[in-house]
Design a protein around this nucleic acid. Structure first.
Lengths: 242, 242
DNA sequence: CGCTATCTTGAATCCCTTCAAGTCGCGTGG
DNA sequence: CCACGCGACTTGAAGGGATTCAAGATAGCG
């Protein structure tokens, strides 16, 4: 199912060191995590966990993207979370997964075995604290997404999605940088509560209006950041506040 | 804005004693909470907090219902949470509210001042633990709601909403009990990502099909629990499993 | 008793979906 | 090398479910 790599990356040199579950840890605490960690890699489209599975690990996304999805019996699917680098999978006290987890791109996880990690959560306040912080961040994100799903138009959904990708891509808000599109049209549709045809049409509209430009199907560039933000509906007057 | 009642109710006799933030507490820990708690009551439709406010308290809902809503500049509104008795408002480490909080019925809160409560969270693992547990429950609920908002039809949304009310009303799954409808049609619409007209139409359909029956506009009774569950879309075959 | 907020119902419209056809890009094998 | 095939994507046309706009009904309350 997956490859286990050597623990070659030192925590102190880890690209997600300051954003992941270990963010608040001191050097000595890091050393404890270092002892129990292992890396796993997955191919694009590879399932990681199915709903109902018992989760043997807690993991941080080191690189790549994974999706959390829930499906109804008739096949309708809704993505309920997108895991980008530094995001965390797993919750103390609960070993049963409530959704399917899938790698949408090539993915590397930094994983910790259940028991020793829960032990560390109990004993290292820096980890427990970061855990709560990240759970609450996720809750905020989920609520923001509820507004998108319940009230935004297709156009606004696409704009919000693209803006989120730009924001989390690293290049603060500058245009002219290539941004990775880590999902297929169908996956985007499942994220936004749309059909893949609607996703395609709305993205074409933005392309035709020269708001974005596609380098290829999986990479785009922002041509007009302000127009994109205006289209999200988040800031009706499009003012440059905040 | 609100009335401050005497602390007449003892924690040990509190109706939400075993489900609220204090659920895991021992008697001596309860005594510490008792010292810093106060009751506040609000009238139906009374705003409790606005987005951006600094939250002076952490609170548990003792009785009544409150809503968490987010609004877009043009007025479109999405409810992102419904607080029923035992539910908790407030998060350690963050004092700014991200949404509007409103009493939708007459409401009583059991509130704790910020600093002393955060102190207790740090010192009483039973409280910290319950805090994480409740945050994760909320996250699960939010994700379940994302499926509803993104993928369910109006009919399925209404059925899911009514089923949730029945489930949380106390009467496990028995019919023939009057269930409280703690929201107006408009509020239900904002909860489900619909318009109030659509809510009204779908409820009328259930009424005409004798799935539910209205005692008055704010109270209904289940006539056909199985039909209601079938209509939620959660269990395509309607099997009586689980 | 009538006022008003809330709710119901109807009719027309519209946005998104559904169904269908065609294009693009890329790896494989002839 | 290039035809072939296939998955991913785009685009068009028709259909439908929810919204919008508009009237009217109902109930709670002074």
């Amino acid at each position: 199912m997956y490859n286990i790599l050597n623990n070659r990356i030192q925590c102190s040199k880890c690209p997600i060191r300051h954003r992941a579950i270990c963010a608040h840890c001191e050097e000595d605490e890091l050393a404890l995590l270092e002892k129990i960690k292992s890396y796993h890699t997955y191919r694009a489209n590879q399932p990681i966990l199915w709903r109902g599975d018992t989760m043997p690990h807690f993991s941080s996304v080191v690189s790549g993207v994974a999706s959390l999805t829930k499906s109804m019996e008739d096949g309708r699917t809704q993505m309920v979370g997108l895991l980008l680098p530094s995001d965390f999978i797993g919750r103390p006290g609960r070993s049963i997964v409530e959704f399917d987890v899938t790698a949408t791109t090539e993915l590397t996880l930094c994983s910790f075995k259940r028991e020793p990690f829960e032990e560390l959560v109990r004993n290292i306040p820096h980890i427990a604290h970061r855990m709560v912080e990240m759970a609450l961040d996720e809750l905020d994100a989920a609520r923001e997404w509820m507004v998108l799903l319940g009230r935004k138009t297709a156009q606004e959904k696409i704009a919000s999605f693209l803006e989120m990708l730009v924001r989390r891509s690293g290049h603060p808000d500058q245009s002219n940088h290539s941004v990775d599109l880590p999902l297929t049209r169908d996956e985007i549709a499942n994220f936004l509560g749309l059909t893949l045809e609607t996703v395609s049409r709305q993205m074409s509209t933005f392309r035709k209006n020269r708001v974005i430009e596609f380098l290829d199907r999986r990479h785009f560039r922002i041509l007009d950041m302000q127009a994109l933000h205006l289209a999200t509906g988040d800031d009706a007057d499009g003012s440059i506040l905040s």
